[in-house]
Design a protein around this nucleic acid. Structure first.
Lengths: 224, 224, 224, 224
DNA sequence: TATGAATGAGATTTCATTCAT
DNA sequence: TATGAATGAAATCTCATTCAT
């Protein structure tokens, strides 16, 4: 326990705590690559460098492993984004650009992006997990867009649009890009430059949100 | 097809040619409900009202059935859309609205919408099929958006935007809605009114495409 | 379906109905030999001459197979014994001897005898099945002894003993012989001659049941 | 044992010699509850309050543990019974009653009674152990009955019956009661009052052994 | 063409046993 | 002596696929 002890037996101590995360990391990669059913625990074990039985020391079942993987993969990241946003100073248009670009750099463009596709694919087979993901991830992520847009409206920078669907529509092209990267893009259709795509999206987005245009009731009647 | 024919041929005496389609229809439902792996041929056979062996008279394997299901489900519809579009007379803004609404009514909002999610989920395990889907469905569907936008630009109704990403961005919210309906929406998150959502989207879209605004170089440098 | 058809394809028709019984028979032997846990389905399948998967066409699980085996093995026999008894004419002492000897010849001494040991061993792991066995087999079998003893008492041949425990005590040595044959006897301790053992038992039994002795309140106070 | 000793030796500082017995005691309970196969060493270790690895310091394998449990559980008790008997003064009928009642109080009615059922269940899978049990336990226990009966015959109290099967038949209802308590009785069939049952048994037994009745060749020809 | 009984490879899961610490 | 993480063989169960009828 004393600092010295760590020097004497460093490997052992680290091992036990780190194991579940190591296993989950190996599993995440495979789940993203192949989906839940097509991933064999044999392969997860092999990739993690342990035996199949070891998986069952840490996870009760394949399903439990899956759930753990999703939660461990996502939960840690979402809070970081929220904190970053609150501290921003600058125009809301710039914040929107920043949000979208950062999202891509931190999540969408990384391995984490695959989790979204995974959850979407398996939502039918894991209803409780899907509910958890919906509440903890999707809703909170959408909240980031709500925050930016409301911020812009308050400042008179954006028009007064409805919060019912506009945030979703802002997010949709970003999410689609994420999904794309983990589905058809893999199959040789690498024709999208993420940065350029996202810039086009933000350009259009900000253009249509900008205040001072003729149709400034945009979307407001949609909420009925 | 004529009323008389129905009287002459009792319902249960199906033409041989119809069999594969019936089987594929049963399979489609299950694939959409459960995904590829979780769908058992036992259940497909049961739903189609035939024996499991019969499936193998028409399809070489589960994979072959899957491929056939995807192709049969989609290919038939896409051409109809194309024809409809070419004949349209009216503003491009209206055509855009029409395209999006019709897409939803004909595809996105129907069972067919599930195919998109299915293909996305399974693209990694069926690369050739994904390639086929990409080329035959996605690209052609995207072509409809390209057509509308170019039509609007030619008529001076829309600004001169780049064709590289704008069509994708126009389609993204519609596709997302489709995916949503077949994933998280099922799990009790029925909080989106499709028609209102789509109207908000088209409002924003047309607003940002409309000619005569300051930033009319929108997206053009993005293709670079 | 016509008699002729049976001659043409006799094997097929018989097969389907007989299968479950064939499988259960193979399973019974192994369960008796090794007990429930130590019996592998591989071996059951091998002994029945089918594949492992075939077992699952007829039985949902190993437990279901076990239950089926017990029921099929026992239920058929018990009724026969009851019918035989009712028709008997002669002294009750002779009927008692006959009951015990017939039981041995028909059940105890045959493969069926092993079921009793099996049920006793596994009763803790299959409570519902044990309850079934208790009600349908043990209670009914005990009823045969009750019948004989009451018959003898009515005829003035036996003393008026209590029905609470006497029947059980009459049966105990017979059951023990059965259990013995399927446990220690197997291990080289083949030192019991069943017929002689049973004759000694019936001699003692009838002697102590016979009316006209001094202590003829035997057992009656036991029921209190 | 003295109160002082308890203060001097803290409870957890057990003598090394006591360890195996503690482990065996924990194992015995579980073996009796669940049977050999269904007992997991994990549970044995947990109940004994040690780690699974520790079990292997004292026992080479699960089988070795089982054998040790049986031997330790039984061997210690059997000698006590023998000594008690030899010292008895009184009629043989009373000794018989005493033997049966004491057996029940000391063994049959206690946890030890479960060992008999256990051995019977597992005899097929542990032939050598079954042989050991047969020789060391069953034969010696049967010897107690032989002793009583011969004692009664010598004294002219009992008839001259054969020693071949009579002792077994005397013991059978007692053993059955033991087995019953650890099998069907558990499943809600708690309908036997042991004391009353045993009294009925001894009444019948002594009645049929008593000298001075007509048929006093009982069982003698059975040995042939 | 149609059936459905049969197959057997392969998946998940369990657990007695080992061994580095 | 004691631990408990790790192992891997073996068991149950599933299901796409085949084939005799």
């Amino acid at each position: 326990m004393c600092p010295l002890a760590k020097l004497i037996e460093p490997r052992w101590e680290r091992r036990k705590d780190a194991r579940p995360s190591e296993l989950a990391a190996a599993a995440l990669e495979l789940f993203i690559e192949k989906g839940f059913s097509a991933t064999r625990l044999d392969d997860v074990a092999k990739r993690a460098g342990v035996s199949k039985g070891t998986l069952y020391l840490y996870f009760d079942s394949k399903e439990a492993l899956f759930k753990s993987v999703i939660q461990e993969g996502i939960v840690s990241r979402i809070a970081e984004g929220e904190a970053y946003m609150r501290a921003y100073e600058g125009t809301s248009a710039d914040l929107m650009r920043d949000l979208i670009n950062t999202w891509w750099d931190q999540i969408g463009g990384t391995k984490l992006g695959g989790i979204t596709k995974l959850m979407m694919s398996e939502s039918g087979n894991f209803p409780e997990l899907a509910a958890f993901y919906h509440d903890e991830v999707i809703t909170r992520a959408m909240g980031l867009f709500v925050y930016v847009i409301e911020r812009g409206i308050k400042a008179g920078e954006f028009r007064a649009v409805s919060m019912d669907y506009v945030p979703r529509i802002c997010a949709a092209p970003v999410v689609m890009l994420m999904l794309w990267r983990h589905s058809f893009d893999v199959c040789g259709a690498k024709d999208i430059d993420p940065k350029a795509y996202l810039q086009t999206h933000t350009d259009m987005l900000i253009h249509s949100l900008r205040a001072g245009t003729a149709e400034n009731t945009l979307g407001t009647q949609a909420s009925k």
